[in-house]
Nucleic acid binder design. Structure first.
Lengths: 173, 173
DNA sequence: GAGTACATGTAAAGGGTTACATGATTGG
DNA sequence: CCAATCATGTAACCCTTTACATGTACTC
């Protein structure tokens, strides 16, 4: 149940409303732990009931700001230092690679080239995020930067692989 | 709904029982599209009812072998050449990186070093698979090899990143 | 005044995980 | 004969996705 810990982590940074959290799930966390609006509000209610977060303020338009409680901080820490639950990585894109032999050679190569193109686009996007940001060097931002760098390297590696794979497919199929 | 297409792809290769498929989901597809036993049998029933697969033989211990039908092959092809549904990548490991600032510097560095260790282990494992296999060069195997190579490069890249990140954390936090 | 962004809530459906449940066959 | 493996089925629970539903405040 990592959505719960994602919310706790975000609230450990600063108090936020469901709407604020939702925006962060759509932006900075989009490639790491995407979450929908309905999920966020549901989990906030559950966390609040469990005493891991609490309402710390209200604002216009029915806005409710939540802050993390001491119990919430303890729960977050337990999860952070606990045993790493495994990836359970599911990739429809890679699954198709397994079945590329069911297509014609040119179709398969085209698929891999499209895969390469997308990864290059993502790579360029992530690099632009890194290069466009103002790096103040506070701990929160350092961690964001590390995660961002992961994405940059991963998209680079995936893009390179896909170009190579398209060549291999043309040669060996 | 990619489980459905994973099963169709495997059955396009050769007729198999639920048990056979389950084994493949635990081995070759484990890092790409893992699936549980209960899922496999359920989906087989649904695919059979939809006419995308059919029972092609029976064996000892109540074994039922399914084969893909022409309708199933058409469905598989539609999915293969259709628009790529996006990743929806969820990584608890990377999520923690986002919140590493909540730990002490040494704890964070230790986490990243453990991350590096795991990726190196996976890298070694995947390389041993590649180097231990008998490569006959048939189309099915070429595709498996391409996917395997993806995993090798990804684990390499992740491991390198984690080592680098541990250093950065020590320096910049 | 209209459109956009802010703000929250819930219900239904789909897919994945865990657990229970059962039985047949093979190999040592 | 006993254990491991082969083989299937299903129920409950949890999480995610999609969709519907509603209302407020700001800006042009």
């Amino acid at each position: 149940m990592s959505l719960r810990h994602a919310i706790l982590g975000l609230l450990a940074e600063n108090p936020s409303s469901g709407y604020d959290l939702m925006k962060r799930f759509e932006t900075s966390l989009a490639f790491v732990w995407p979450a929908k609006q309905s999920q966020v509000y549901g989990e906030l209610a559950r966390l609040s009931e469990a005493g891991l977060i609490e309402v710390t303020g209200t604002g216009a338009r029915n806005r409710r700001e939540y802050g993390i409680t001491d119990a919430g901080r303890a729960e977050l820490r337990d999860w952070m230092i606990g045993p790493g639950s495994e990836a359970a990585y599911r990739s429809p894109a890679l699954l198709r690679v397994f079945f590329l032999w069911t297509l014609q050679r040119e179709e398969g190569a085209a698929y891999l080239q499209e895969f390469a193109r997308r990864n290059k686009a993502r790579h360029a996007f992530l690099e632009s995020l890194r290069d466009g940001a103002e790096w103040r060097g506070d701990p929160v931002q350092v961690c964001e930067w590390l995660a961002l760098e992961f994405g940059i390297r991963a998209s680079q590696s995936s893009g390179d692989w896909a170009e190579w794979a398209a060549e291999q497919l043309t040669e060996h199929l």
